[in-house]
């Protein structure tokens, strides 16, 4: 190349990008106009209800339902995954059967089932055999309220899915790691806790983040048994005033905001557990 004359570099011109941008903006404007023209969107109503205290209560319930179901689901999932991988065939079978049932039936069915548990077992009784001593005896409907049923159904269902995610993570850890730890005299439980699970986390966290996001939205299903969540709150309102669309938009805005928060959290956690796996980004 000549170095005496100055040569101008002409970057590739992306005419296609400008064209598609124009097209997208045009279509979006058309859609927005149609939306605003509809008499049933009522943007003012959306604003009215977005921060109503019963909507906010619903948001709080949705959040702790998600958190509780995920915590219980993950703990149960670890147990189920370890049982599934244990050398004891009875425990392996037990874990398999649990996962088979809870992954094999719709969540909605499970939620309604727990909501109507009282129809199956009217009373919950715990007594010492042969002595007649009753430790606990209550009508099922008193113990398993809508909220309890919601937590039970969501967390048992999550356990089945989390178990498979965690089992996959455990299996992804190189067998040389287990051997090296075993050669150092570490017991199987110690190897799992200190060597295998920390490395499995890297594989487990992205799908578990996904599970959390799915769970947040699945909590909407508990509105069917009056679970007091966000969806229950907006449903109660629109069943009274028939402003279905604005209230669904209220719910959608909240769900979208919460999911965005969760995605940010997932990114931060993934970075934390990626330590030691890239040459550069180690803190």
């Amino acid at each position: 190349m000549s170095n005496t004359e100055t040569v101008r570099v002409v970057p590739v011109r992306h005419y296609g990008r400008w064209l598609t941008a124009l097209l997208v903006v045009g279509l979006a404007a058309l859609f927005l106009r149609a939306l605003l023209a509809s008499p049933n969107l009522e943007p003012a109503t959306i604003g009215d209800y977005l921060f109503k205290d019963y909507v906010l209560d619903g948001v709080v319930t949705t959040l702790w339902l998600t958190l509780l179901a995920m915590v219980l689901g993950t703990v149960g999932g670890v147990v189920l995954a370890v049982l599934r991988l244990s050398p004891n065939p009875v425990l392996t079978g037990l874990s398999w059967a649990f996962i088979w049932v809870f992954r094999g039936t719709p969540l909605l069915v499970q939620i309604i089932f727990f909501g109507f548990l009282g129809a199956l077992f009217p009373r919950l009784t715990l007594s010492l055999p042969y002595t007649g001593t009753v430790l606990f005896d209550q009508p099922t409907s008193v113990v398993v309220t809508g909220t309890v049923a919601a937590v039970l159904a969501l967390s048992l269902n999550e356990m089945a899915y989390a178990a498979e995610v965690i089992r996959g993570g455990i299996l992804a850890v190189d067998s040389g790691q287990t051997e090296a730890a075993a050669a150092l005299g570490m017991s199987p439980a110690l190897i799992l806790r200190r060597v295998v699970l920390p490395q499995a986390m890297r594989v487990i966290i992205p799908p578990m983040g996904n599970e959390t996001i799915t769970m947040l939205k699945s909590t909407a299903l508990v509105s069917i048994i009056a679970g007091r969540d966000l969806m229950t709150a907006v449903q109660t309102v629109y069943q009274g005033n028939y402003k279905v669309i604005p209230l669904l938009v209220v719910a959608a805005i909240w769900y979208l905001a919460l999911v965005s928060l969760l995605s940010a959290g997932q990114w931060a956690i993934e970075r934390r557990f990626g330590r030691g796996f890239s040459r550069g980004g180690v803190r």
């Binding site: 190189d174 040389g176 790691q177 051997e179 090296a180 050669a183 005299g185 490395q199 030691g276 796996f277």
Partner: peptide, 15 residues
């Protein structure tokens, strides 16, 4: 515990 082993592929704990 008191038998040390060194592997072909090192098997250090990467985390």
């Amino acid at each position: 515990r008191d038998i040390g082993m060194v592997f072909q592929r090192f098997n250090l704990f990467p985390h």
